[in-house]
Nucleic acid binder design. Structure first.
Lengths: 218, 218
DNA sequence: GAAGGATGGGACCTTGGAGTCCATTCAGCG
DNA sequence: CGCTGAATGGACTCCAAGGTCCCATCCTTC
């Protein structure tokens, strides 16, 4: 409960290139391990070993495990948003959504549905135990949703989507279908539920396309 | 790896009424605690205290924590299926689905979206760390889905739903929307995403209703 | 090239929480 | 009743995992 540099920001610790690299290595290792085993089931010794560092390094860069986890939330959130931005920022048509869907499905099918969504599983594991992590995750989901709804807005503005379509709601529904799909696929060790869920959401969006759209895509 | 009474079922330990009650109390306490804190974040001492039992009782009834958790998976699965059966076994119309949706939303809104689905969160927490638990959960999801698809089949048979509707896929989509909705609602501490997700799934099902159905419900 | 902070290795400490054990009480049965 | 095994209380053991510490080495700066 200290007031951590509220009024004395001068004392900023120097940080070298090497230090940055180590910190990155730690986060990268934590990311990998916690993705497959879950956050709570991953120990700091696991992380230490996988990142080829030592205990002192871990505690040099992170105050404790909780802080490491929080930094991981940011790290992973940034990765996901970056990936999603790449796939969504130029979304202007329904077929773009289909391509986006296909990429996610394909990636997940490489694991046979295992592990689920890096953000979703953290959300489940942490929401009830770390308020700060929860709120960061919630914001990340919001940003992700915005990427989708922005695309839908573009589609609506361009006339591809009807005026009565609600981009925000459609985006939320699509995100939920995606997360639920990940969850069921993970439990079943099989991507199929995720495909079905995404197809449902896409069909729902398709029902808001303007008239001159031909037969079913898929 | 012992073959546990494969051929000598005579030695079945006697179990008294009192013993059964204690076992039940333990499961019930574990259920409550692990629902709000998560499985891994709940200690056996927590359970012991909340159930007003002692260490020896815990280990008298369950071999270890893993077994307790697995029994909890069964226990909770049975509870959920029982509740869902009550709400779905007589499902014959779209308005029945709406009522079902409303009940789930209302229940979750009492927690402001917190905690999520008892099965879904266990699935995320356990799928990557206990194969047996994962497979039981997967089966429970399947049974849950079947309750829904059975209802949809009845609707299709009665003509409420068109012939080209696929009850299994619709049920999977609905389940995914529900789980994803729980997840987002939990992260946001707000039921809304869950409502939006379920409404999307219901709209999707509605699009398969036979002609003579009037304007939007909701 | 000496000082001082950043980086690093890894032994060590501490503790929470899983799991053991034994003495005691309780309940059904001959 | 008294015997037997189930039910129970709770002290105790043990260890994995988080966290501390100290000393060595590296890098930057003057």
């Amino acid at each position: 409960m200290g007031d951590e540099q509220v009024a004395a920001p001068t004392k900023q610790r120097r940080i070298s290139q090497r230090g940055i690299a180590t910190r990155e290595r730690i986060l990268e290792a934590a990311n990998r391990l916690m993705f497959v085993r879950g956050v709570n089931a991953t120990t700091l010794d696991d992380v230490r070993e996988a990142s080829q560092t030592s205990k002192s390094q871990l505690y040099h860069h992170f105050a404790d495990k909780q802080e490491l986890v929080r930094e991981l939330v940011k790290y992973r959130g940034a990765l996901v948003l970056q990936r999603e931005r790449a796939g969504l920022e130029r979304l202007r048509s329904f077929s773009g959504l289909v391509r986006w869907r296909n990429a996610l499905v394909q990636a997940n099918s490489l694991n046979n549905g295992k592990y689920g969504c890096g953000l979703g599983s953290m959300a489940v594991e942490l929401s009830d135990q770390d308020e700060q992590a929860r709120s960061m995750l919630s914001e990340t989901f919001a940003a992700w949703g915005k990427l989708i709804s922005d695309g839908l807005h573009r589609m609506r503005d361009s006339g591809a989507l009807r005026q009565d379509a609600d981009p925000e709601k459609l985006a939320t529904g699509l995100m939920a279908a995606l997360q639920g799909g990940y969850l069921l696929a993970n439990a079943a060790h099989n991507v199929e539920p995720m495909e079905v869920a995404l197809d449902m959401a896409l069909d729902h969006i398709k029902s808001f396309l303007s008239e001159p759209s031909g037969e079913p895509t898929r």
